[in-house]
Amino acid sequence: MAQPSFPAASEVLLLDGPAGKLEVAVDLPEAADARPLVAVVCHPLPTEGGTMHNKVVTMMARALRELGATTVRFNFRGTGQSEGGFDQGAGEQDDLRTVVEWVRGARQGDALWLAGFSFGAYVSLRAAATLHADALVSIAPPVTGRGWDFGDIEVPDVPWLVIQGDADEIVDAQAVYAWVDGLKRKPQLVRMVDTSHFFHRKLIDLRGAIQHEVKAWLPPA
């Protein structure tokens, strides 16, 4: 079955995914600010309430959209209107691949950035090399204690930002810093003081940090 056309205005639609329908939200920047760039944003753990409407996810998308990116959020299988069931990160990579292939087919020539929060950071990093992402944004990547293996992730040689709250009660901040220190090619790391996992009272600071760090990576308008 043919996938729906990429919308010319902000819209929520359903794609045919590997486990059934995938719920996708496309949001366009102001026309005067638009750049040849699409950022696909992945949400946190669905078994703990994570969806594409999570406040950190929507703030990530907003920050990138204000820089001229078209943003695509989507619900992993079994979340919202997306069909199927949770698959421990493996099937979720296939969901992401479906969304990226749809974006690339419709927006040929545009840069593709992958962004993710918590579990979404794991999924987007795990798939980044095979999807040939042009840049990466990872917020609170759950490097230990959650069952996700970051040890053999192949990260492409592209601009990469990691943001971590020092007071994260879910992801061990010190483990994230140690993981970054052990990488051969290190990302840009922003450590946010007195900041919890869900960036309570820090969402505007998160927006500013994202925009400050990635502005130099933007393709020309």
Rank of each mutant, 00 (worst) to 15 (best):
residue 4 P to R: 07
residue 6 F to M: 09
residue 6 F to N: 08
residue 10 S to C: 08
residue 17 G to M: 02
residue 20 G to T: 12
residue 23 E to P: 12
residue 23 E to W: 11
residue 23 E to M: 13
residue 31 A to Q: 13
residue 32 A to Q: 13
residue 33 D to L: 14
residue 34 A to E: 15
residue 38 V to T: 14
residue 40 V to Y: 02
residue 44 P to I: 06
residue 51 T to F: 05
residue 60 M to R: 01
residue 61 A to F: 03
residue 63 A to V: 11
residue 67 L to C: 05
residue 70 T to S: 10
residue 72 V to Y: 08
residue 75 N to G: 09
residue 76 F to M: 09
residue 77 R to I: 08
residue 77 R to A: 06
residue 78 G to N: 09
residue 81 Q to V: 00
residue 82 S to P: 04
residue 85 G to R: 14
residue 87 D to I: 02
residue 89 G to F: 07
residue 89 G to R: 06
residue 91 G to P: 07
residue 92 E to S: 04
residue 92 E to H: 02
residue 98 T to S: 14
residue 98 T to V: 06
residue 102 W to C: 05
residue 105 G to N: 13
residue 112 L to Q: 04
residue 113 W to C: 02
residue 119 F to E: 04
residue 124 S to I: 11
residue 127 A to R: 12
residue 128 A to G: 11
residue 132 H to D: 15
residue 132 H to F: 03
residue 132 H to K: 15
residue 135 A to S: 12
residue 135 A to E: 09
residue 136 L to R: 08
residue 137 V to G: 08
residue 140 A to Q: 15
residue 141 P to R: 11
residue 148 W to Q: 13
residue 149 D to V: 04
residue 152 D to I: 00
residue 156 P to L: 03
residue 157 D to M: 12
residue 160 W to P: 04
residue 160 W to M: 07
residue 166 D to M: 12
residue 167 A to T: 13
residue 168 D to R: 06
residue 169 E to Y: 07
residue 171 V to L: 09
residue 172 D to P: 00
residue 177 Y to Q: 01
residue 178 A to L: 07
residue 180 V to I: 14
residue 184 K to D: 14
residue 186 K to F: 03
residue 190 V to K: 11
residue 203 L to K: 10
residue 207 R to A: 05
residue 208 G to P: 00
residue 209 A to N: 10
residue 214 V to K: 01
residue 219 P to R: 08
